[in-house]
Write a protein that binds this DNA or RNA. Structure first.
Lengths: 115, 115
DNA sequence: CTTGACCTTGACGCCGGGGTCAGGGTTTAG
DNA sequence: CTAAACCCTGACCCCGGCGTCAAGGTCAAG
């Protein structure tokens, strides 16, 4: 399929797909006229890329997932190298939540009755 | 004190302090020669600004905390006068925590066995 | 044949939180 | 008096993840 169709199926934009390719996350074939040609598996791959990016990973981080982008992350086991990256992000996120909860506690202390 | 000394005491840079002022977070007096003049309380204020920014709040968000920036968030009750402002920010902070917890949940789902 | 939808590359814009000059003026120590 | 160290404003640069415009190639329908 071509880029526009993939963008529709994957729920993103043509621009984003070209950006992913520029970042080395996708490697579509090229038709004789220069058009990008994607296989069906690209839909799932793009879904995974978007999932990982939405978790706060960078495009650089996502490159570490390339060998297993075909697998479904949304529930299955993940390749170990990727697991380490995800675990590192998890601690980042948990630290941020903890810090925000400290602030939240202080704000609540600051509202003795007006709450 | 002048800007360089404040930067040292607050553990940040001159550039950042000028940026905070540009964003309306600091309002130092000016000496006759044009130099910024900060009081001692500015050290704590800058610490609070940096704390809030480090939690992912924007400079715009931090402006809502201005009336109580000099009261150490680490300490007891905060100025009751700005209770409503703080209450509004509290919901913001809670929304932010909720969003991060969604991310946290997704990351944990992605690590079904290593956690 | 023309229109319009789709595709190509290249390049600039945006946001946030500053970093880093450039080109001055001021203060302070020796 | 001079040199170092400080201060000023203004302006451009950076990153990530695209949006958006420009200028043009390709292809199917009418």
């Amino acid at each position: 399929m071509r880029i526009g169709e993939l963008a529709d199926k994957a729920g993103t934009t043509v621009r984003a797909l070209r950006y992913y390719e520029q970042q080395g996350l996708l490697h579509p074939r090229r038709a004789p006229n220069g058009y990008r040609e994607y296989g069906e598996s690209a839909v799932g791959q793009v879904g995974n890329i978007r999932l990982l990016l939405s978790l706060g990973l960078t495009a650089h981080d996502v490159r570490a997932f390339l060998p297993c982008l075909d697998q479904e992350f949304a529930g299955g086991p993940v390749c170990p190298a990727s697991a380490r990256i995800i675990a590192r992000r998890l601690t980042d996120v948990e630290e941020k939540i903890a810090a925000l909860e400290v602030v939240r506690g202080r704000l609540i202390d600051a509202l003795p009755r007006s709450r």
